[in-house]
Design a binder for these strands. Structure first.
Lengths: 343, 343
DNA sequence: CTGAAAGCGCTAACAT
DNA sequence: ATGTTAGCGCTTTCAG
């Protein structure tokens, strides 16, 4: 059997309450007795049992993180941000992969409740009514990360996907490029559909038409699907001057599909990735991207959650982090300058 | 306040002990009363509190995972394997990043103990005596993953790094290549040093000398350091016919360093990566690699841990998973066939 | 097959 | 400033 707070109390000649006090700093303890307690703790090699503490205090100092897949680079980077801030605030992470399946997500919210997590960080492709209902039933503080609740009822941290995509199109438009394709995700995926809205909005705002056949939907945001979709597109004889992809992997898929048929970027097509994962600097040409502050998405949402948990003053329940375009080689035409000086 | 087992008992007109029994299947309960209990649970929307359960039973059904960095692709893939098997056995994962810093690792083992995890999965670059001692003090079942205890006292799942590297060198030797470089990690990193041993052993076994200047040590296994190290090497006027890298990222760094000075793989250098992360098929040329069963490394170590926890019969406390060479384009000389027909 | 009762190790009033 | 006393919600003997 292991040491308990009671053993420490006896060793130090005080009551267990006093030990608890020096452990948690919940009340002032005389320097002298505090020293005795600390000495006893040291002597016995005592460590508090967090489970017992959790039961008694109703706060476990652990937070649940539900995400589609840790082995996805984008999620893994977010998770790192979450973890760092969690550590800073003494929280632990209970991790679960959902594979973006709603049934599993709902199930996981339940088991997270059972684990008595203090709060939940939720990363998903789509926030459905059933999920929102489950949040409400669970009565858990939740922050959405890299996703939005369409109704805006749940605190969330994300970028403005629509204007990010719009900026991307504008970026090409300003270069004088018109035949711009959008290589997005499945139509059931709100985040990338939001980007599609931005894509079309940019054309509309510029008073330009756009070709519906230039809108591609890959089954996922993964490389393989990007490649497959690009190959199909190109095999059908279509072409694009530029492509705005909904992820770095998708852009890479397009890039390699072009290359595998003898083409080349940026000579034959200008490519813009999305996310700015580490991937984008590992390729040749290096991938220009619409950068999301991936790590910060995680860090900020965790910070927001701590505020929720401590009843701190909160200015914004929905925070939009800034995006930006990072220009690397995949969009640099050899004959044109990086920036169009006009306008 | 939330529903407790007591509420269910009253609703069903039985004692809490009986409710506990149907919940856990710890004893036979009459079908009829079981049905009543189940109905009450359903009616109240009752969910057991895992923290209370953990305190009473001394088993939390959660296991701690300590790894250097989730945002590293290799670790993230391992973690996915861990998670899947953990889910299968109803365990939850408490995740913590150590940044491979010993002090932090030791600290984390302690906090994992506080959390009363049932077991620990430990992924690190180096198992030091202090870490081993901490394991012993914590009295936690531990399985090392993708690492070994040099003394072999701790259950571990990994590949045979030495023979993997040796196979890599032999692979090139059989192609008639002699000037083979090794692009490894820091000298303080046992796993990659083990690979270096295999590298030198291959030359010795073949009765061939090897050039010490062809042994490169990058500061980490990351792309950036691979690039930097390769650039330095090439800038100094060195060359290699082939390079065996200690990670896919390192190989990619070399690849791009070559490319950025106008060279090309496989024409100017044959490149073999290590790990077979998703990266290796996303590059052009596609990277030939020494494949580790990354996902399985996680899955098998988690499975081993469940055996430890359930006192199942265990045949091997140290399991070696098989590695293999996957031949893609980065080692395919245009003029030579994939396989040397002789021998 | 089921109930009563005693903890698990800690926090948090409530006293003093 | 410190001690006493109830629980937190469950599992687990021990009876019956």
């Amino acid at each position: 059997m292991n040491k308990t707070i009671y053993d420490v109390a006896r060793e130090a000649g005080v009551s267990m309450a006093t030990v608890s006090r020096v452990l948690n700093g919940t009340a002032v303890v005389k320097e002298e007795t505090k020293a005795k307690v600390l000495a006893a703790i040291e002597l016995l090699g005592y460590r508090p049992n967090a489970v017992a503490r959790g039961l008694a205090s109703k706060r476990t100092k652990s937070i649940g993180v539900i995400l589609p897949d840790v082995s996805d680079l984008f999620h893994a980077e977010i998770l790192r941000g979450i973890e760092d801030i969690a550590t800073m605030y003494q929280y632990h992470i209970i991790l679960a992969n959902s594979d973006a399946r709603e049934a599993r997500e709902i199930d996981l919210i339940g088991t997270m409740w059972e684990k008595q997590v203090d709060g939940l960080l939720f990363i998903s492709e789509k926030i459905t009514p059933d999920i929102v209902r489950t949040f409400e039933q669970a009565q858990l503080p939740v922050v959405l990360c890299a996703t939005d609740d369409p109704e805006g009822r749940i605190p969330a941290v994300s970028i403005d996907n629509q204007s990010a995509a719009r900026d991307a199109v504008d970026y090409f438009l300003e270069k004088g490029v018109r035949r711009i394709a959008y290589l997005g995700g499945p139509t059931a995926h709100p985040v990338t559909m939001e980007r599609l809205k931005g894509y079309t909005a940019a054309f509309q705002a510029a008073g330009l038409p756009f070709d519906q056949e230039l809108v591609l939907h890959a089954d996922t945001l993964k490389y393989e699907d990007g490649y497959a979709q690009a190959k199909r597109f190109l095999d059908q004889g279509h072409t694009a001057e530029a492509v705005v992809a909904a992820s770095d992997e998708l852009a890479l898929g397009y890039l390699n599909a072009v290359r595998d048929r003898g083409g080349k970027a940026p000579d034959d097509v200008l490519l813009l990735g999305f996310d700015n994962t580490r991937l984008s600097t590992m390729t040749r040409p290096e991938l220009s991207v619409i950068a999301q502050p991936t790590y910060d998405l995680g860090a900020v949402s965790m910070r927001l959650l701590t505020k929720l948990l401590n009843d701190e003053q909160i200015d914004e329940y929905t925070v939009r982090l800034p995006h930006s375009i990072i220009e690397r080689t995949s969009t640099q035409r050899n004959e044109t300058a990086a920036e169009d000086p006009n306008r």
